[in-house]
Structures are given as C-alpha cells and as structure tokens.
Amino acid sequence: MTSGTRRTGLEKIMKTVLLISALASVLIVLLIFVFTLKEAMPAFREIGVWKMLSGTTWRPGNGEFGILAMIAGSGLVTLGAIIIGVPLALGTAVFLSEIAPEWIVRVVRPSIELLAGIPSVVYGLFGMVIIVPLVRMIPAPGNAGFGLLSASIVLAVMVLPTIANISEFAIRSVPRGYKEGSLALGATKWETISRVMIPAARPGIISAVVLGLGRALGETIAMIMVIGNSVILPTAMTDNPLSIFLSRARTLTGNIAVEISYATGVHESALFATGVVLFILIMLVNSSARFLLKKGAQ
C-alpha cells in the first residue's frame, strides 16, 4: 500500500467518524423526544391533548390533569426574568465593551463568568434567604414572598451571564468604522452607542436573549425553591395588574421534578406530557429566534 492510498483511507475513516459524532447529537435529541412522547401518549390519549393544555386544575388524585397553570407559570416567570434581566445584562455588556476602563473590565468580567458557574441550587438558597423576605415586604394581601416576582428576580440573575457575555461580544464585534464614523459626525459617545453600535449588534443581542430565554424556561430547582409551587393560575392580587407577579405559581419543570418520584400510571404519563409541552415550547422559542435573527441580518 502506498502512503497516498493509506492517507486517502484515513481521510475516509475520519470523515465517517466526524459524521457519526455530528449525527449523535441529532439522534440523541430525537431519541429523547420520541421516548418522552411515547411515555406521554397514554396521558394524551386518556385525557386528551386539548383538555390537558387548556385545563386549569391539576388534581392527580381526581384524575384532573390540566397544565395551563404551569404553562402560565413558566411563561410569566420567564417574561419577568427577561424584563428584569435583559436591561441589566445589556447595561453590563455596553459598560464592559464601550465605557469601562481596562482594569474594571478585568475585575467585572471574571465575576460575571463566576456567576455562570454557581449551581442553581445555590441560587435557590440565595433566593429563599434574601429575595423572598424582601419581596414579602411588599404590602399585598396573601403575599408570602414566595412567588413569580421572587422567581423572576432569581432567574434574571441566572440568565445575566449568558446574555451579558454574548451581547458584549456582539457589541465588540461591531466594526470600528461605524463608531468612528458616528463620532466624527459630532455624535456623543452615548448617541453612538444607542444609534449605531446597538442596532448594528442587534442580531447578536437577539440570539443572546433567546439563549437566555431557553435557559430560563428550563430552570428547575431554583424555581421550585422560591416560586411557591402551588398549582394555581396566577392572577392579580390587588387592583394593580402587576400584582400578578406576587402570585404563587408552578413551572412546567417544577411540576415534573416535584411529583415524578411518587407518580404512577396516568399521573406519571401526564408528567411526561408536561415534558413534551416544555420541549415544544423551547423549540418554538429557538426557531422564532432564528427567524428573527435572519430578518435582522437582512
């Protein structure tokens, strides 16, 4: 065998190995989806997909398996986290990329990265000890501190590193010429940032927010610890519609984690169905993000 053919052979083997590695992740996603769906099928069949999705009561003992309250819980807590977290993260990103002197960047950036490394159960503890008592101080009837607001705040801190890091990178990647062009026209630093830099970095910022959304929807243990876990459709607790965030709630993820250890039969299957809904929700978020990204790039 000449070295030429040996090298061609190796080439082919490597190609196959790489293809298999690439396919593995696709396969794993598919397998997870198929098996979760298979386990969920009895619930979907017995209860009905629509009845599950639109049902507001979840009483496994009575055979009632509506998960609308949990969908609302997950949705609202994620919304809250984005409302609190995105401005914070964007502010951090702009500060680090455009304003902070080098030595501050050297201190702040590692601490943000450290934030990303903290286990979520520790965030949960922090939430229970610090955030929940603070939220409890808001005067409203029935406000126990545990609820959507506390969970949103904790979640906002948890998604901050993801959104801040990627947004900072996106802003730093904006060509220098844009910035110089704007300043040379007599724009102030802030005008340059808000009118040129951030719009130019928008595709990157959107993908950062979406990655944060995905992380927020999937977060489990920290949510269980601060959100109260009652299966109720969140409603405003006072005349102020914003007081909906003081309501207790349960997330889709929390629903599964809290009950799976003792659930059997249809109840167990309904928890898998909850997983399927979560899965589809996250897929929807990701694909809409990709759509927005493409639109932004045009």
Partner: peptide, 16 residues
C-alpha cells in the same frame, strides 16, 4: 468641533 470638521475615512464606512 466635529460638526464643523467632518471626516471621510480610508475604508468607506456607511452605517448599516
């Protein structure tokens, strides 16, 4: 000052 003294750069840099 920069309003009164405009600048054109080496690489064309229109905004997106």
């Amino acid at each position: 000052l920069r309003r009164k003294v405009g600048m054109v750069f080496q690489r064309p840099n229109p905004f997106p």
